[in-house]
Amino acid sequence: MPSTGSADRAKRGTTAVDMRIYRAVINAVMSHRLPPGTHLGEADFCELYQVSRTTVRKALLRLAHEHIIELRPNRGAVVASPTPEQARDIFAARRAIEREIIPLVIRNATTASIRQIRSALAAEDQARRSGDRAAWIRLGGEFHLLLAQLAGNQVLQRYMAELVSRCSLIIALYEPPGASMCQNDEHDDLASLIEQGKVQQATELIEHHLLAIEARLRLETQEKKIRLADALAGC
């Protein structure tokens, strides 16, 4: 019997190849290697991945459905560029979701889940220490996605996957040059509170953490351009 994931993919008509393209774009967005406004040419994907336009379009449609890209008439696909108002709405939604996630993580905490959290933090810290900013940013987002997974609510997890990607777009568009958006000590403190079962303090910290990230943004229009092949190199 096929797995639930396999059945879901079959139902949506997805394949391993278009899922690879989808994940490559998501990872490039989360690593800030693919800034908002970047044009995503179908021909570029065809050449990079040696696939048909039909396969590329499947991946692009899924990305558009999740608001990671926009399909614009006469221009094709571009990485979405949230407005300042949209950015505030997205961060507000993420705060609301994560306030629900943290108590569930604590309620469902096990020795294994705490080990997963600590392992994720170690990988994030290693990326920071090695100076790999792209990996550090991506792993910071994945830390929040891990918490959503450990909460045990698939609906919240699905919402978080979209919100983290959209927040990465916003940060790529509006962060001041050289700013660090996600401090490791805040994640460490959150992990300690989760381990100690301190629901109120952990919930307050995640709220403060996300508000601090949003406060450091310059919510004004900026433009960054990059070549698609450079952004997806190695994906």
Rank of each mutant, 00 (worst) to 15 (best):
S3M: 05
S6G: 11
R9M: 11
G13M: 08
V17C: 07
Y22P: 01
R23A: 06
V25T: 10
A28M: 05
A28G: 10
M30F: 04
S31A: 15
L34Q: 04
T38Q: 01
L40Q: 03
D44R: 05
Y49C: 00
V51E: 06
R57M: 07
A59S: 10
L60R: 04
E66C: 07
P73A: 03
V78L: 14
V79C: 05
S81A: 13
P82C: 09
T83G: 06
T83V: 07
I90Y: 01
A92P: 08
R99S: 12
L104Q: 15
I106P: 00
N108D: 06
A112D: 15
R115M: 10
R115C: 09
Q116V: 00
S119K: 14
E124G: 13
D125M: 12
G131V: 01
G131I: 02
A135Y: 03
W136F: 14
I137L: 13
R138T: 07
E142N: 14
L146I: 03
N153W: 00
V155W: 10
Q157V: 01
R158I: 05
E162C: 09
R166T: 08
C167I: 13
E175Q: 15
A179S: 11
E186G: 09
Q196D: 14
G197H: 03
G197A: 05
K198D: 14
Q201V: 09
T203W: 01
T203K: 02
T203E: 06
H209G: 02
H209P: 02
L210N: 08
A212V: 09
I213H: 01
A229T: 08
A231Y: 05
G234W: 01
C235K: 11
